[in-house]
């Protein structure tokens, strides 16, 4: 009888070990699914962080939610949802690439055009600074406003170029648009025609 009880105990113990080893309830596939999702989100981070930060934040939130489900042992849900995150991350990479291309095109246009506008203003300011009197439609105060605007535009343009060189396209374009606004205003005061591209 005692021998039978010991035998039964051994059988139960071995069974318990086998269950623990084989029956992880889908934890392994869930782990793999999370790793794949994490890798995809990490890949998307570089460009999406710069060009589509809100979309990246949303994706990271979804990843955190899936990881939370994993922590709570809801492996079935993890395996069901994580592949969707991989797909979303891949879409985000593509969208960020498109956005980057759009911004680069905008920057190229502005960086080619703005120096022409600023150059035209500078040229006119240089000439008017030598004039014994200003044109009828330009007061000394307005001319002073143009000169300070030109100085600000020149400084902002230098900052925009620095932002571009450091890879911050969004800031570069925002600064370039500020320069454009200042230049348009100055051209209006000076009676210079505003180029079609700046309208």
């Amino acid at each position: 009888m005692k021998r039978n009880l010991v035998g039964l105990g051994i059988v139960l113990l071995v069974s318990a070990f086998m269950l623990a080893a084989c029956g992880d309830g889908g934890k392994g596939p869930a782990e793999e699914a999370i790793k794949a999702a994490e890798a995809a989100v990490a890949t998307a981070k570089a460009d999406a962080g710069k060009f589509l930060p809100d979309d990246l934040k949303s994706l990271e939130g979804a990843l955190a939610a899936v990881k939370d489900k994993f922590a709570k042992g809801d492996y079935k849900a993890v395996v069901g949802e994580a592949p969707g995150l991989v797909a979303k991350a891949n879409d985000l990479v593509a969208s960020a690439k498109t956005k980057k291309e759009e911004l680069t095109k905008s920057w190229t246009t502005l960086s080619e055009g703005l120096p022409k506008m600023v150059g035209a203003i500078q040229s006119r300011v240089d000439i008017l600074s030598k004039a014994k009197k200003l044109p009828a439609n330009l007061t000394a105060e307005k001319f002073a406003e143009v000169k300070s605007g030109l100085a600000a535009a020149t400084a902002d343009w230098a900052k925009a170029q620095e932002s571009f060189k450091s890879g911050n396209l969004g800031d570069a374009i925002a600064l370039a648009n500020t320069v454009k606004g200042t230049a348009v205003q100055a051209m209006g005061i000076l009676g210079l025609p505003v180029p079609a591209g700046a309208k």
């Binding site: 703005l114 051209m187 025609p193 079609a196």
Partner: peptide, 16 residues
């Protein structure tokens, strides 16, 4: 009398 001559390819031409 004033004409801002568009150059076509250069939308930022600021020449007066």
């Amino acid at each position: 009398e004033e004409t801002n001559v568009p150059s076509g390819s250069d939308a930022f031409d600021a020449t007066q």
